[in-house]
Design a protein around this nucleic acid. Structure first.
Lengths: 151, 151
DNA sequence: GAGTCTATCGCAACACGTTGCAATAAGCAT
DNA sequence: ATGCTTATTGCAACGTGTTGCGATAGACTC
């Protein structure tokens, strides 16, 4: 997988963005973008390194992480930190969103902009702080686990 | 510092809690608790290791981190992850609280339970999720930086 | 196509945290 | 005090992510 289908639209956007900044398009970057695109959900840094090395065994962690940083700078990828502090990356395919980690069942929910709006509003109201939805990573108990605990 | 004053109350609470669980009170644990108590604000794991080694050069990171985990299990300390994913520890001196990191000026604000109440309520309302204030670590722009950007 | 400039790569070393295991020592019983 | 049990320690190695540096190789000019 992630070998023949090179995700044309994304690649072209990237090449253009890089050229504009005097930066370069390389085979490693192509591979990393492909791998990220093929990781439908979220993937940790280490997982991405692993998968990239399957396509190109000579690739090194530093290259992968540096490229991920670059993609993030360009607004094509995002990363956030899970409850254990490890990094998780995903392409900015859809919209920006937050994350909810349930300490009961371990499930992870996404929090889209619409659902988050009242939360962000409450944060601003209580603190004057304008929070970034992308970095909103909450831990707690999901509705199901709360019901289980009560029952 | 953190040498003569052994924070009696805390130590006794700890000794009792450990005995109850069949666990042991050791000199290293005393030192680590003292260091934590002497770190008025929040301290990263690495900082704490560093300070503990000043009191006892033979101490190792594994001991420090294991003790911090233990203190957390006993409810005497807390840790959370900063925006870069690094760990930050503090004694549960006061009340549970969240953290706000401003990406503009780098400042860190604490968020007490009263201020957080409407936020937690909004989270539950929007998602059914009951979030832990201790793990609430937001990134965004503080009121001052927002004003600066507008002006 | 050859030459030039420099962004990017791979390597090696580092920083922070975690884990397995053998040696040590805390706490209890005698 | 002595011996026993086993929690805890220190060590060493590992996992994840970062950084500095010399070598490589894009992209542009002629």
């Amino acid at each position: 997988m992630a070998q023949g289908q090179t995700n044309k639209g994304l690649t072209e956007r990237l090449q253009a963005a890089l050229k504009e900044r005097g930066q370069r398009w390389t085979e490693q970057r192509q591979i990393i973008v492909d791998v990220l695109a093929a990781s439908d959900g979220h993937a940790t840094g280490a997982e991405l390194v692993e998968r990239v090395r399957q396509d190109d065994p000579s690739a090194t962690p530093s290259t992968v992480y540096r490229t991920l940083d670059l993609l993030e700078e360009l607004g094509l990828a995002r990363h956030h930190h899970g409850p254990d502090g490890r990094e998780t990356y995903h392409l900015e395919e859809t919209t920006e969103h937050g994350h909810l980690h349930c300490r009961g069942c371990g499930a992870e929910q996404e929090l889209d902009a619409a659902a988050a709006a009242p939360i962000l509003k409450a944060i601003t109201g209580a603190t004057g702080f304008s929070a970034d939805l992308d970095h909103l990573s909450l831990q707690g108990l999901c509705a199901t686990c709360r019901a289980d605990q009560k029952g």
